[in-house]
Amino acid sequence: MFQSSTLQAAVESVKEEVIQWRRYLHENPELSFEEENTSQFVYDTLCSFGNLEVSRPTKYSVMARLIGPQPGKTLGIRADMDALPIQEENTFDFVSKAPGIMHACGHDGHTAMLLGTAKVLAGFKDQFKGEVRFFFQHAEEYFPGGAKEMVEAGVMKGVDFVIAAHLMSHVDFGKVGITYGPMMAAPDAFWITINGIGGHGGMPHQTTDSIAIGAQVVTNLQHIVSRNTDPLDNLVVSIGKFVGGEAANVIANSVEINGTVRSFDEKVRASVPVLMERIVKGITEAHGATYEFKYVNGYMPVINHDEVTRAIEDTVREVYGDDTVEIQRPSMGAEDFSAFQKEAPSAYFLIGARNEEKGIVYPHHHPRFTVDEDAFEYGVKIFANAVFKFLG
């Protein structure tokens, strides 16, 4: 692997810029499919580096190409840019200026780390073969996702490998999480409406109680995981929303149920909506109610390629030492990075951003979420060294 004190010095030289970029982005968050100012900031910053071919593949995304002097492989590196509809409760100096919107998942850090990586590597254009493509992706948080749009726009044409990282609140600062094979689940969503006959709470015999029927539906949906699928299959069926009724003495006409299904195996995934509707249909018919059922497939599961993952693990060990690596179990979280994975062998890894000594302990999507900014150097250094691992 290419080892150079000059490369390491270049990483050190951008540390403060990366932090400032992240803080600017944190103060100015934008939601999925609304990243107009964010993408323009990224575009302008990349153009200032030199040696990069910068473009806008879609309305809210940015791509930069760094092409070496000799032909070779092409490595893609991706960062997401969107924020979440959460009111920030942090008290540091660079809190969100946008009411009800904050970077509560670390995407501001991802964007800043990849900007830092692009600036570092722009100074080493003549020292590797092939090409590096930097993907600044919009709308990771909102289905159908920005990754799919970027892929459809052709950004992956000719890409041989693609990598990405996530700053992670459950991984301690100074550690890097590596997962081989299945890493994140496919996140599907469902909506169920139970239509009964409302009436007086004191005369339930004159009604068809949609809440009581809905409660049975919720309970029985759990049988899909516990009794209808192999215990060795990874599957989650969770209800996140149950809405019905407006008054204590009124039995509701209808109930709305909304939830998520997480899985890795395509056969298991395909079986779930069939099993769900069978349960809903049976319970509602048994009690004289009707139902409406909608099921939508979300992102594909994130499944890491063994050879690409091993190259990332080797890079981490060579740059930071064996103690830095933590082999991680699969997660039932989700990521639309899987759209890039469909096009080329890839690896997605985690950068520890939790630091109890600094009070950085809140989980992702929490109003007091933040990350240890010292972790950004890990991202830049691993990405920069990985380029020479893949491209030589």
Results as ranks from 00 to 15, higher is better:
174 G>I: 07
176 V>F: 03
240 G>F: 07
30 E>W: 03
56 R>C: 02
299 Y>I: 09
247 A>M: 04
320 Y>M: 10
27 E>A: 10
12 E>R: 14
201 G>P: 03
53 E>G: 02
197 I>L: 03
330 P>E: 00
87 Q>C: 09
155 V>M: 13
127 Q>A: 14
212 A>I: 13
287 H>C: 04
302 V>T: 13
286 A>G: 15
262 R>C: 07
364 H>N: 12
303 I>G: 08
241 K>H: 15
37 N>P: 04
229 T>Q: 01
188 D>E: 04
75 L>K: 06
73 K>I: 11
170 H>P: 07
33 F>C: 00
9 A>M: 11
60 Y>M: 13
366 H>T: 01
2 F>Q: 14
132 V>E: 05
249 N>A: 12
48 S>F: 12
247 A>L: 08
73 K>F: 06
39 S>D: 05
126 D>S: 13
285 E>A: 15
235 L>S: 15
98 A>Y: 02
186 A>D: 11
314 D>L: 14
96 S>F: 08
125 K>I: 08
8 Q>P: 00
175 K>Y: 08
370 T>G: 01
194 I>K: 02
92 F>G: 03
133 R>L: 15
78 R>T: 14
89 E>Q: 10
243 V>P: 03
30 E>Y: 05
108 D>K: 00
357 E>T: 09
27 E>D: 11
386 A>E: 08
326 E>T: 14
96 S>N: 11
307 E>L: 13
311 A>P: 06
65 R>E: 10
54 V>S: 01
73 K>G: 15
353 A>F: 01
345 P>H: 05
323 D>A: 15
265 D>I: 12
238 S>T: 15
340 F>V: 03
68 G>M: 06
264 F>A: 05
210 S>H: 10
161 F>S: 09
198 G>K: 01
350 L>W: 12
66 L>K: 08
120 V>E: 00
221 L>H: 00
223 H>I: 04
91 T>A: 13
389 K>E: 08
172 D>T: 13
169 S>I: 07
376 F>L: 04
34 E>W: 07
262 R>M: 03
130 G>H: 14
12 E>D: 14
292 E>W: 01
31 L>Q: 10
134 F>A: 08
49 F>Y: 15
151 V>T: 01
116 G>Q: 03
60 Y>F: 15
145 G>D: 03
207 T>Y: 12
216 Q>A: 11
81 M>W: 05
381 K>R: 10
111 T>L: 01
68 G>R: 09
311 A>G: 13
330 P>K: 02
389 K>T: 12
11 V>F: 06
183 M>N: 04
148 K>E: 15
223 H>K: 07
43 Y>P: 04
182 P>N: 14
229 T>F: 02
341 Q>H: 13
293 F>D: 08
200 H>S: 00
316 V>W: 00
353 A>Y: 03
177 G>W: 00
364 H>L: 14
132 V>H: 08
143 F>M: 09
202 G>L: 02
380 V>W: 00
204 P>V: 06
19 I>A: 11
162 V>K: 11
109 G>T: 05
149 E>R: 09
278 R>T: 09
103 H>T: 13
367 P>V: 07
207 T>P: 05
260 T>V: 06
192 I>L: 05
131 E>Q: 11
65 R>T: 08
